[in-house]
């Protein structure tokens, strides 16, 4: 499978939805501006979780320090939207995906730098994080992992 084809231009707006951080998520969004995907690992039960919260959803502990994730993950599932959200008009159809991070949690993301087709988007393919400007924020997205592990090594 070729990764050379790039789809329509990825636009940072105008008009794409811009996330608005809250006090409990601000550290996450400060991280994306520095090219870091930050997660929390519970100090009590050691479980990693996403999205950012002030207590651990597994055990309730409020000792939930941050660390920088590897940025590596795998394509868990997706849909390919044939309708455009505001700001996405030049990109339809485009995938809205779930990425399973190496550290365990899943998150939603777009998959960039590759065709937005069922043939190209193979479940379990290796991905790595990238960051896209979006208003005054940087939004994490994922692209095929360097090293060409895009053939879906499987779990």
């Amino acid at each position: 499978m070729s990764q050379t084809a790039t789809e329509g231009p990825r636009s940072s707006g105008p008009g794409k939805p811009v996330p608005r951080p809250t006090p409990e998520t601000a550290f996450y969004w400060e991280g994306t501006k520095q090219g870091e995907l930050r997660l929390q690992r519970c100090g009590a039960c050691r479980q990693v979780f996403f999205y950012p919260r002030s207590s651990c959803p597994h055990c309730g502990s409020t000792e939930v320090p941050w660390f920088v994730a590897s940025g590596r993950g795998r394509l868990h599932s997706y849909v390919i939207s044939h309708r455009a959200a505001p700001g996405f008009e030049d990109e339809v159809p485009y995938a809205i995906a779930l990425v399973e991070l190496e550290e365990g949690p899943r998150l939603m993301a777009n998959i960039v730098g590759m065709p937005q087709t069922p043939e190209a988007l193979v479940l379990d393919m290796a991905l790595e994080v990238a960051f896209e400007p979006r208003g005054d924020q940087m939004v994490p997205v994922f692209q095929p992992a360097a090293g060409g592990a895009a053939s879906g090594a499987g779990a």
Binding site: T22, Y78, S81, A84, L123
Partner: peptide, 28 residues
Amino acid sequence: DPASPQGQFEAPYGPVGPPTLFPIGVLR
């Protein structure tokens, strides 16, 4: 609400209502 969990962690990726979110696990 762009400050809601959905506004921060899903909406930036361009969902257009339930058809682009509800079936997200079907391929898996």
